[in-house]
């Protein structure tokens, strides 16, 4: 079971001119096993939503609630959220110089499971995950995200998704900057994850392109820190045809 429930979430960041409100009451529920797409123009607050759920210290939650299977996510520390079953594939994954991918993956897996993985099966699992994402076997010896191409960073995020096996994955523009082959590889990874029982996905994207490979159950149009409209996959088709124009004018 996994239900992520976001209710009236309000978030601001502090700026030189005082706090700036970015999320203005976001409400949405990802039920057990569902995939939701959030689509919106640049600057509408999509990453803010993703980071706030993950607990990035830059964002102040000023109102609302987030629960995972009824547990208060906002009361948890960043790492507790991950251990509770949340995963964020970042739009801009961070370099950690001198820490190898294999060390990083093993440390994360150990933290999530509360015990070290069995060495033999773990090595096999890592190699399989890397291979399925077209990352070569020497990838494990490289420093985390250091000198990775844009595509490698995103594929590495999805490798983590598969290995860490959370309940709910938030994918922040995982499709941006990928060529068509990489997009397919990444989508297949996400679909393997989705095929498992009860996994939730919040797929944040700017473009409709990825929705050809990952079919969402629900689509939310995100404008100016709020959900402007929700619907089925047909809403994505409308966006494909007409863009965000209708929603932008409506929000002014």
């Amino acid at each position: 079971m996994s239900t992520l429930e976001i209710k009236d979430l309000q978030v601001s960041v502090s700026t030189d001119d005082g706090p700036k409100e970015i999320l203005k009451g976001v409400t949405l529920t990802i039920d057990d096993g569902e995939t939701h797409a959030i689509m919106g123009p640049n600057g509408s607050g999509k990453s803010t939503l993703a980071y706030s759920i993950a607990g990035h210290p830059k964002y102040d939650i000023t109102g609302g609630s987030v629960t995972l299977d009824g547990e208060d996510v906002l009361a948890m520390s960043v790492d507790e959220r991950a251990r509770a079953g949340l995963f964020l594939a970042m739009q801009y994954p961070v370099e950690v110089p001198g820490v190898s991918v294999s060390n990083f993956l093993r440390t994360a897996k150990t933290a999530i499971d509360g015990e070290a993985p069995k060495l033999r099966t773990w090595v096999k699992d890592v190699n399989a995950a890397l291979e399925q994402l077209n990352l070569d076997p020497t990838f494990g010896t490289r420093s985390v995200n250091e000198g990775f191409s844009g595509g490698e960073k995103k594929r590495h995020e999805i490798a983590q998704l598969e290995l860490l096996d959370p309940k709910v994955a938030i994918l922040d523009e995982t499709d941006s900057g990928l060529d068509i082959d990489a997009l397919k590889v990444v989508s297949e990874g996400v679909n393997r994850f989705r095929a498992k029982d009860g996994k939730g996905v919040l797929l944040i994207t700017h473009y409709t392109r990825i929705l050809r490979y990952i079919q969402p159950d629900r689509v939310h149009v995100f404008v100016d820190g709020k959900v402007a409209e929700s619907g089925g996959p047909e809403l994505a088709e409308e966006l494909e045809a007409n863009g965000y124009e209708r929603f932008l004018t409506a929000s002014v």
Binding site: G55, S77, A82, M90, P93, V94, F104, T107, A108, I112
Partner: peptide, 18 residues
């Protein structure tokens, strides 16, 4: 860096160590 590591379940202490 700390946020990235912690978002993978790694405790603050362990993240600093890494």
């Amino acid at each position: 860096q700390l946020f990235y590591l912690r978002s993978r379940g790694v405790s603050e202490k362990e993240a600093r160590r890494l």
